[in-house]
Design a protein around this nucleic acid. Structure first.
Lengths: 207, 207
DNA sequence: AATATGTAAGTGAGTACTTACTTACCTTGG
DNA sequence: CCAAGGTAAGTAAGTACTCACTTACATATT
């Protein structure tokens, strides 16, 4: 392994430290992670961390910025629903979250830790991205109500019902460890949830 | 305030320490709480804690025991659904969780912290109480399927769909702070979720 | 082209303080 | 009296953070 050594530009080093920190924070929380560990993970001295970030807390702020200005997630969500209508739209949303959780539970852990430890991180993220997602679903739901497909109901609350099914399932599987004793194929999960939700929202098609 | 002073029996003191500890752990997590704080909260010296519990970790174990051997929660759930059928049964379940979360988010926080910090607590609790609840709902769902009211679907997964709606809503409201910018009357929430779920599970009553 | 200069990147060895946990010693009630 | 309840005063190993200093490199001057 050639392992070319150090001397990065400030920006590179900062990014690298944030990356190492967010990985550790997601695993062990802010309080549970020492600056020493972060330094070791980044392969630098502790002092270097404090050259770039004047307090440990600033690492958290930097993570917020990175995540909130990172549109990759939003982009993927948009990709996985674009052009889709009706049941397919909801399947797209469900599939997106199930996939994301599975490939990177770290981010969800970071959010949870943030919420529990009372940092602003989760607050800011939830208020912007969380509500955005609710509104996105609610918008679609309103459309289906206007089209006479769905019964009229509180659209935001309905959106949260659907998101709740999906997100709680993912959280329980990955973070509470349910997957060790409860497992179903992801496609089946998505299909079942969409089915329950869509049928539940539809107008009765009685005689 | 009369504030009768000290000298409790070992058992009393242990219980008191566990109580203080679990309150603090639920607020700041295991790593985020120092034994000094626990001692202060309990109004005793740090050394006394270690007289009764040989390591900090044992406090966690004691909390597990207390919670798992405490049937109060289960009892209240049973109370709030007893004799109920159909929609009323699900309303009872939803109401139970919404109420519980509202009056004591601390316990949920303890579970979440436990899961994130990788302690056995959450594991044990989820495997027993969590799956019990899924099974309870699934049992009811199976009954409704046999009766021809519900479409045939994976009963456990359906149970998790319903629990997901309710629990994610509660978690988001209380722990992620959604309630500061999203609020609905609890009865409406329960009614809406039950309606979506029940209609979604029902057999089409077509001609 | 070779050299001096200014500065950002990086560090080893601290600091002051907190952590979980101990020791040696009182105090009380049965 | 004496065992159990309780504590003040430790300790070794962390903790976040600082200091005085070295290194690497881009640029300007010779």
């Amino acid at each position: 392994m050639p392992m070319k050594k150090k001397r990065m530009t400030g920006r590179e080093r900062k990014a690298q430290i944030v990356k190492a920190a967010s990985l550790l924070f997601s695993k062990k929380g802010f309080k549970g992670t020492s600056t020493r560990e972060i330094a070791k993970a980044a392969g630098i001295s502790e002092a270097t961390i404090f050259k770039h970030f004047s307090r440990k807390d600033e690492l958290y702020s930097a993570i917020i910025d990175t995540c909130c200005n990172d549109d990759e997630g939003r982009y993927h969500l948009m990709k996985s629903i674009e052009g889709k209508e009706g049941r397919e739209f909801f399947k797209g949303v469900a599939a997106y979250f199930i996939e994301r959780f599975d490939e990177d539970p770290g981010f969800a852990r970071l959010l949870m830790f943030g919420a529990l430890e009372g940092r602003r991180f989760t607050d800011i993220f939830m208020k912007s991205r969380g509500m955005d997602t609710v509104d996105l679903l609610a918008g679609h739901i309103k459309g289906l109500m206007r089209a006479g497909v769905f019964k009229r109901r509180d659209p935001e609350l309905s959106a949260r019902a659907f998101l709740g099914m999906v997100l709680h399932y993912c959280t329980a599987q990955e973070i509470y460890g349910f997957k060790r004793f409860f497992d179903r194929p992801p496609r089946k999960v998505a299909a079942t949830f969409v089915d329950i939700f869509f049928n539940g929202m539809e107008k009765e098609t009685g005689p």
